[in-house]
Structure formats: C-alpha cells, structure tokens
Simulated assay, not measured.
Amino acid sequence: MEALIETIVRPLVDYPEDIKITKQEEAQKIMYQLHLHQDDVGKVIGKQGRVAKSIRTLVYAAGSKSNKRIFLEIM
C-alpha cells in the first residue's frame, strides 16, 4: 500500500525525496501517515481537499479486501 501511495503522490510534489510514509496497525484499523515537505502539503491536499479525497478513495478501494478500516493522514 505504501508503494501505491508514493506512486500517486510523487508526480504531484516538488520535493519527492521528502516523502515519508509510516504505518500504524491496530486491531480494527490501519493508519497511513503521509509526511511531506511543507511546501508540498497544499499541492497534495488540493483546492477544497479534492486531490486528497481522490487519493484517499483510491487507497480505500485498494485496501477494501482487508477486514480492517484504512485511514490516510496527510501531514
């Protein structure tokens, strides 16, 4: 899943070397935290959060076979 997130985000940012994805797994959920360069956060979130919503939709769809809820937090 980390590779999918990075593949989606890498073309959107100016500092691809600063992309860092961490994973926290709990009993009922998996939380992915996407850490970006400060200047790139707005680009990944997009106007009114449309880009972030699209990324989350793809990640949720890719993880739908798992019994755990998947969350993506952009930092």
Results as ranks from 00 to 15, higher is better:
1 M>F: 03
1 M>N: 01
2 E>M: 01
2 E>Q: 07
2 E>P: 03
3 A>F: 03
4 L>V: 00
6 E>M: 00
6 E>F: 01
6 E>H: 00
7 T>F: 13
7 T>W: 00
7 T>S: 14
8 I>M: 06
8 I>E: 06
8 I>N: 06
9 V>R: 04
9 V>K: 02
9 V>N: 02
9 V>A: 01
10 R>H: 08
11 P>M: 03
11 P>W: 09
12 L>P: 12
12 L>K: 05
14 D>I: 03
15 Y>T: 14
16 P>W: 04
16 P>V: 08
16 P>D: 03
16 P>Q: 03
17 E>V: 11
18 D>L: 05
18 D>I: 04
18 D>C: 01
19 I>D: 02
19 I>E: 11
19 I>L: 05
19 I>K: 08
20 K>M: 01
20 K>E: 06
21 I>W: 01
23 K>H: 05
24 Q>E: 15
24 Q>R: 10
24 Q>I: 12
25 E>P: 00
26 E>G: 14
26 E>R: 12
26 E>V: 07
26 E>I: 09
27 A>L: 13
28 Q>W: 03
28 Q>C: 08
28 Q>P: 09
29 K>V: 14
29 K>A: 14
30 I>S: 04
30 I>K: 08
30 I>V: 15
31 M>T: 15
31 M>L: 15
31 M>F: 10
32 Y>G: 00
32 Y>Q: 03
32 Y>W: 02
34 L>G: 04
34 L>H: 07
34 L>K: 02
34 L>E: 06
35 H>Y: 04
35 H>Q: 13
35 H>D: 13
36 L>P: 10
36 L>M: 01
37 H>Q: 08
37 H>V: 00
37 H>L: 04
37 H>R: 03
37 H>D: 13
38 Q>H: 08
39 D>W: 00
39 D>C: 02
39 D>I: 01
39 D>K: 06
39 D>T: 00
40 D>S: 04
40 D>L: 06
40 D>V: 02
41 V>G: 02
42 G>A: 05
42 G>H: 01
44 V>S: 01
44 V>Q: 02
44 V>L: 05
46 G>D: 02
46 G>F: 06
47 K>R: 14
47 K>F: 08
47 K>S: 09
47 K>Q: 12
47 K>V: 01
47 K>E: 13
48 Q>K: 15
48 Q>R: 12
48 Q>M: 11
49 G>T: 10
50 R>L: 10
50 R>V: 13
50 R>M: 13
51 V>H: 07
52 A>G: 10
53 K>S: 14
53 K>H: 11
54 S>P: 07
55 I>N: 09
55 I>C: 10
57 T>L: 15
58 L>T: 11
58 L>E: 04
58 L>F: 09
58 L>A: 13
59 V>H: 04
59 V>D: 03
60 Y>W: 10
60 Y>L: 13
62 A>W: 11
62 A>K: 05
63 G>L: 10
63 G>N: 12
63 G>T: 14
64 S>K: 13
65 K>C: 12
67 N>F: 11
67 N>H: 11
67 N>W: 09
68 K>E: 12
69 R>M: 15
69 R>V: 15
70 I>K: 12
71 F>Q: 12
71 F>P: 13
71 F>T: 14
71 F>W: 12
72 L>I: 09
73 E>P: 07
74 I>T: 09
75 M>D: 15
75 M>I: 15
